[in-house]
């Protein structure tokens, strides 16, 4: 598999990792971060530099990108537990911009001139063909989705979600909610870091423009459109947000129009989702409906809500 379809598949799989990992923060721990592209960039540069200067061994490259992303995620969590969440959104933009500046201006990153990245190796064999590189990416994506699945379906992950739902109640039931936020953010950073290393490997070239704030916004859009807090939502969102602009590219001849249309379409979709389907596309698959009328409730006092706190 090569050429256009191969590249679209690669970009889509990377988007799936990015959206699924951001969902651990946004959908589960409820840390609204617009710094995810910087985690992606940290992993991409770490992976690229390791491959260039040290070894292109796939395990070493992925491992170091993972570690670097995890460190980034941990720093971000440190901010998140100290700052109320609406302010954290702003703080995360600050973090993103600082990292963007570093990517742009540090000597080792090559700035907007970028870095050429060698093909990765497995047991000394170079994985250069597009089939090989897609296979590596598919395996990495499967592992990343496995981690995301575990977070939704393990005791440890449920505690993270409970803490995100209601921090006060979760801690009153003995859960260490700060630990939950740290681990969600560290894992999200680690996965985004690996996605970055995969991007560097797939494209054989990176520069700083890829890991900018608008990419963070696009990843957030994937999560929201697909459905935050679900396993399939971010996957659906990543596929839609990646593939729709490509389809537009087919139908619209003029590339300038395509860019404009794309922006308009994103805006429109986000507004429509927020108004009519805040649970995202995944919400359509969930059984829902108004609460049933059950006996056991006095209608006049049913909605009584005193402010307890």
């Amino acid at each position: 598999m090569g050429g256009y379809v191969g590249e679209l598949l690669a970009v889509t799989l990377i988007a799936v990792i990015l959206a699924s990992s951001l969902n651990l923060m946004v959908g589960y721990a409820r840390i609204y971060s617009l710094a995810h592209a910087s985690m992606y960039g940290i992993g991409a540069y770490t992976g690229a530099l390791i491959a260039i200067h040290y070894t292109p061994n796939v395990f070493v490259v992925c491992g170091s990108a993972l570690l670097a992303g995890a460190i980034g995620g941990t720093i971000l969590a440190g901010l998140a537990i100290r700052i109320r969440f609406e302010y954290f959104l702003v703080a995360s933009i600050g973090f993103q911009i600082i990292m963007q500046d570093l990517f742009n201006n540090l000597g080792v990153t090559g700035g907007s001139g970028g870095l050429s990245v060698p093909a990765l190796t497995l047991f000394g064999i170079q994985l250069t063909s597009s089939n090989e590189s897609i296979a590596v990416l598919a395996i990495v994506t499967a592992i990343a989705l496995g981690v995301a699945w575990m977070v939704r379906h393990s005791p440890w992950g449920r505690a993270i979600i409970a803490g995100g739902d209601d921090e006060v109640a979760a801690s009153a039931f003995g859960m260490r909610t700060h630990d939950g936020r740290f681990s969600a953010s560290a894992i999200a950073g680690a996965l985004a870091g690996v996605a970055g290393a995969m991007y560097a490997y797939q494209m054989a070239y990176i520069n700083s423009t890829t890991f900018a704030l608008n990419e963070s916004v696009v990843i957030m859009a994937m999560v929201i459109i697909g459905g935050a807090g679900t396993f399939v939502g971010p996957i659906i969102g990543a596929v839609i947000v990646t593939v729709i602009p490509e389809l537009l590219g087919f139908f619209v001849v003029n590339p300038t129009d395509s860019g404009l249309l794309q922006t308009l379409l994103y805006g429109l979709i986000l507004v429509i989702m927020m108004r009519f389907q805040p649970a995202g596309l995944a919400g359509f698959f969930r059984r829902s409906g108004p609460p049933r009328e059950t006996p056991g409730i006095e209608s006049d006092t049913a909605t009584k809500q005193e402010s307890a706190l």
Binding site: D165, E306, S307, A308
Partner: peptide, 13 residues
Amino acid sequence: ARTYQDLRLFGSM
């Protein structure tokens, strides 16, 4: 352990 006047259940679960 306690309950809350406004319940505080884990809403996404």
